[in-house]
Design a protein around this nucleic acid. Structure first.
Lengths: 404, 404
DNA sequence: TTATTAAATCAATTCACTTGACTTATTAGT
DNA sequence: ACTAATAAGTCAAGTGAATTGATTTAATAA
């Protein structure tokens, strides 16, 4: 179809693109800095005070920002700070996991307003999608009960699923959800919900959440290692989530040998370091509703088998962190996950001390080389909800350009 | 100094930023597609024909593009294609290596017009900078002899040096050029040459060269593994070189254990896979002027020691490729280097077959998963020269924004 | 009390892209 | 050979968001 004219070019832009960008940086600045006056915004963004005034006025009219009491801070007319209005926008997040689906609704600042989950029937996507659409409907009803005007301000629906996408049989195993990926799920959900739908893998979603309201808040270069049922990484580069050429970037669970002593038939990292591996070790059923509590208990009880597993996982992750630092030179690396808090915290402890790398610079950031992030069964769903917010309001190159 | 106002915000933009971007995408489109009519450009970029007409007219006035004979291609008025004018801009590249410094001057389309090198005196940067400035002066004289108008059209001077930067003693070894990095070299060169100066590590420079005129031409997601005296990677993400938070991204030479069988005291990858390691193996003096010829001879002669070394390097790089594919999901990976052609080609051969990864998709690009790129002692210098061209003419997010 | 400083606005201007009508040059079809 | 259709490209007026420069407002310092 594009065989006739296969001209490769980037998109142009115009006044509208510039204007859209300026609106986004205002919202971004308020999100990162809390509350700022127009004069502050003008200085920080390089725009003229007049331009900022016009933009803020418009954003206020749209219900996205609001002034608060003016503050005297020295000579001169007192400044009127503006802040984001939490009820300015809402977004739905949906996580589709192996045995369960979860939905979350957040507002502009990332407050969670609705949380609901449902068991997925074993019949595969054709039956699953019915459950999913029903769950979304119920969540929206709950939202409307809390905030009657919210429906009008829904900016999108984000979906998080285990990756990688578009690869049918790399390893023919139950670790991947092949059937789900081949089903036209996004179309069905978009139709059913009447919203813009975007798909991310779990790790990317978790990174989106970390950036909106977690440890990566305001950072432009951060790597989030997502320790969930599988293992992945969300890459925040230049302030944006990086997806690679086919939206599968960050699949660190697929990495092979890492640890001294590994034999030639070593399996992918994910087969050692993941909740799936832990469930196998403890002989827990991953579909068990009380899984998180059971794992938390098991870790608190301790025991040699578990300690040994955590030590070996920590050793692999220590190597992984060193690789990621060498490759990305990030501000920080965040270990987060759809895993119990204790597990993430214990792993971060055990991964220290880190291996030498280029991140070992004399003048470090406020940020540590490695830190713990969100650890919650809901973190992927939360990240899915963060995606439409980020896509609508975060400054991004692609938001400036025309769509051809 | 910024303790008083520590407001974190992104820059805004205006008509000027949009306009600058549109000029850049025109040049980019012509670079990638060869020659295009205004109508083609309008369709490909999403701008109106009128806007394209104005921009092209201006670029032609500035001597950056030129029309060629019009072509009839069916019904309708024949199109007038435009192409880049090679003499529209020039840039100087400078490579500072352990024992030698090289300079290259290229034009807008990447033709090499001048190539010169000089031995670096052992006295360190204070004496080295004299040699360097003298070399640059001579190169410019040679340029003026060829193209009298070129001096006015010099857009900058790129410098390539071994990284990492800003890290004094990670490994205290002669592999790094600590003294050089602590010397205010860039200031001295900028003063001496009267040009904008930018610093990259060798691998980043090589990637810049691959993108301007090598295997990554027109690709937006490519990883260039640079096999030189050290080992590094240049990361082309979203069409731009990615430098990380501190310009040290891509230091894959620092990665530790990789290969099944490595012991716990494994050294960084670079100590196995690099020209430095090869020189050690063959007992060659790296400062030897005929080094490349000697290595080429040695490889053509073959021998068990060399084969074994290449096998082991190939095994490590195979793992590295699998890691990079898993992490970046790129369109392709390019093995290039300041190393003899035969070595690069033999390594690419030996690295095949690649390990399974997410890059193993059914519908591959035209591009292979792994391919050989530029292999030349001059490739880092060439890349250094490509940097100012890229910075001045390539579409980039930061080029749209105001400088605060 | 006055001068200084800073926030914020008003009104006019600018500039690059867009819009819509028009010209020019070629081929397809009768 | 003529006419209609198609496409490239231009002309001239219009648009919209940021800029410019003057002005107003409200605070503190001297």
């Amino acid at each position: 179809m594009d065989g006739i004219r296969s001209i490769r070019a980037k998109s142009g832009t115009n006044l509208g693109g510039a204007s859209a960008h300026n609106r986004r940086i205002m919202i971004d600045a308020l999100r990162v800095n809390g509350a700022l006056s127009r004069a502050d915004l003008a200085r920080a963004t390089g725009l003229t005070p007049q331009a900022v005034s016009n933009i803020i006025e418009e954003l206020a009219r749209d219900g996205l920002v609001r002034s608060q009491a003016s503050v005297r801070k020295g000579r001169g007319q007192p400044a009127t700070p503006y802040r984001l209005v939490p009820e300015g926008a809402f977004a739905i997040g949906l996580q589709i996991d192996r045995h369960v689906t979860r939905t979350v609704i957040v507002n502009l600042v990332g407050d969670v307003l609705v949380k609901m989950e449902a068991k997925l029937p074993p019949g595969g996507p054709a039956q699953g999608v019915v459950v999913i659409l029903d769950l979304i409907r119920k969540a929206r009803e709950a939202l409307t009960a809390q905030a009657p005007e919210a429906e009008k301000r829904l900016v999108g629906l984000g979906v998080a699923m285990p990756g990688p996408f578009g690869i049918n049989t790399l390893y023919d195993d139950p670790w991947m959800m092949t059937a789900w990926q081949n089903f036209p799920l996004m179309n069905r959900i978009a139709e059913g919900a009447g919203l813009e739908v975007a798909l991310q893998n779990d790790a990317a979603a978790a990174a989106t959440a970390e950036r909106l309201l977690g440890a990566a808040h305001g950072l432009d270069h951060a790597i989030c290692i997502y320790f969930g049922y599988g293992l992945g990484a969300g890459l925040i580069l230049n302030g944006e989530l990086y997806g690679g050429a086919h939206a599968n970037a960050g699949e660190i669970g697929m990495i092979l040998a890492l640890v001294p002593g590994d034999g030639p038939d070593v399996e992918p990292l994910e087969h050692y370091a993941s909740m799936a591996a832990l469930c196998k070790l403890l002989d827990f059923d991953p579909s068990e509703p009380e899984l998180f509590a059971m794992i938390t208990d098991a870790i608190l009880r301790g025991g040699p088998r578990l300690e040994q597993w955590m030590d070996s996982v920590a050793e692999r992750l220590r190597r992984t962190v060193q690789i990621l630092e060498s490759i990305f030179d990030p501000q920080t690396i965040i270990l987060c996950g759809g895993a119990p808090r204790v597990l993430i915290d214990r792993l971060v402890e055990k991964i220290e001390p880190l291996l030498p790398s280029i991140a070992e610079r004399s003048r470090r950031y406020p940020e540590a080389r490695l830190q713990a992030g969100l650890a919650d069964p809901w973190s992927a769903a939360l990240g899915a909800a963060a995606e439409p917010i980020a896509r609508t309001f975060d400054p991004r190159f692609s938001a400036i350009l025309k769509t051809v």
